[in-house]
Design a protein around this nucleic acid. Sequence first.
DNA 1: GCCTCGAAAATGTGATCACAAAATGGGAAA
DNA 2: TTTCCCATTTTGTGATCACATTTTCGAGGC
Lengths: 235, 235
Amino acid sequence: MTFPALTRLAQTSVPGGTEVRDEESSVHDQVYEALANRLIQGQLPPGKSVSLRTLASGLGVSPMPVREAVRRLIAQKALELQPSNKRLRVPSLSEDRLRQLMMARQWVEPELAFRAVAAMTRDVIAELKADDQRLMAALGKGDVDGYMQANHAFHFRIYRLAQADLFLDMAKTLWLQSGPFMRVVFGRLGTVQLPQDHHQELIRAFETGDAGAVRQHMSDDVHEGMELMLEALKG
Amino acid sequence: MTFPALTRLAQTSVPGGTEVRDEESSVHDQVYEALANRLIQGQLPPGKSVSLRTLASGLGVSPMPVREAVRRLIAQKALELQPSNKRLRVPSLSEDRLRQLMMARQWVEPELAFRAVAAMTRDVIAELKADDQRLMAALGKGDVDGYMQANHAFHFRIYRLAQADLFLDMAKTLWLQSGPFMRVVFGRLGTVQLPQDHHQELIRAFETGDAGAVRQHMSDDVHEGMELMLEALKG
DNA sequence: GCCTCGAAAATGTGATCACAAAATGGGAAA
DNA sequence: TTTCCCATTTTGTGATCACATTTTCGAGGC
């Protein structure tokens, strides 16, 4: 679970070091993106404990920007402070919480897809098809990580088109929360019986501009994935 | 716009000072609560710029815990960093964003109210009635701040009963985002033509245990308030 | 009077230090 | 071997320092 150091940050840097601020995002942002990616892709399992200093040295930065990134992730419930310890870890999901997650995702993501219809272009559809091919290829190879990444790329390529920042943020937060658990479930099941993907139908609906069908297929896709997680949690 | 110092924090404190950690929340949490309250009650107008050091000295703490609280509020879109400046301020709402806020609130809050029905007790109903009386009294006096506070108390007294942490967090975030703007609108309108409140009907529905009616009345209440904001934004 | 320019103050960001509490680990006792 | 205890290490938290950038504001020139 070592983290590749942030390449952009090579040139650190004694106290109050000499950074060029313009045109590049802050260290805090880079740390946040690095952690968020790993969470969404499920590279940090639920219950995994993490620590500021470990993360910081792994990324080659001081604990300071890590604290801010972590605080942000805690606000999104993507990390939590154990009340007893005050120690940091990746949260586990109760069935109750998973059900709420499922309901929320099923509300916001079809809406995002619906709104994306108007902004859809041939180019983006081509990219979606590429995402879906990567996804199917990963399925074929039993590559769970590849599946997780391609699935994420596919969905958020759509959501970004919706021009709905608030909803997009909600979706990001919900994925951050479900990522670790989703990875465990899919890893356990193997990639064989992964959900019948509705991506093909989704793409077709985008091509014909049928917004109602887009909404429905996205709803089905989310529903099926979450149902799988629910079964895994109970079983 | 001075902030009363955090009373609990009187005993600060040279570097690495001597704090008692157990049983009391961290300074960061207290700062967060202080800021969140002021935002929800609309005491910080949209566009208002704030600064870490000013907040810190106003609260009698070092900038450190304020940075973490602020980072958390930024994650909730209750504060924002201006991209040009990297300076901190209370966000303004576009019509587009307000509409998304409205849709989200209208999805999650009726659901929370619906779930609260099962856990409702005579005691809580009595407290709700007290909240509503405070609200009406504030209305009579033209006391916008009192209205904001009583309204918030009323709603979240219900939502807390729902035993749905994720939804509750979503509602908190949404209120944090709408608070500043709501205060401006109600302040501009005066308290005269505030929305016909549905609180009485809501209380009655809780008393009879009619969950469907609870959901409907909450939906109406949220809808009406947000419509008022929408008109104010356009007009 | 109005504008311009430069010095001073303020601000966000990152690094480092200090401290209390919790976790860890290894050796002694049973 | 197992269990208990204490020293060492690790961890989160808050304060402070250093630095580059931006804002502020008053003096001087038109």
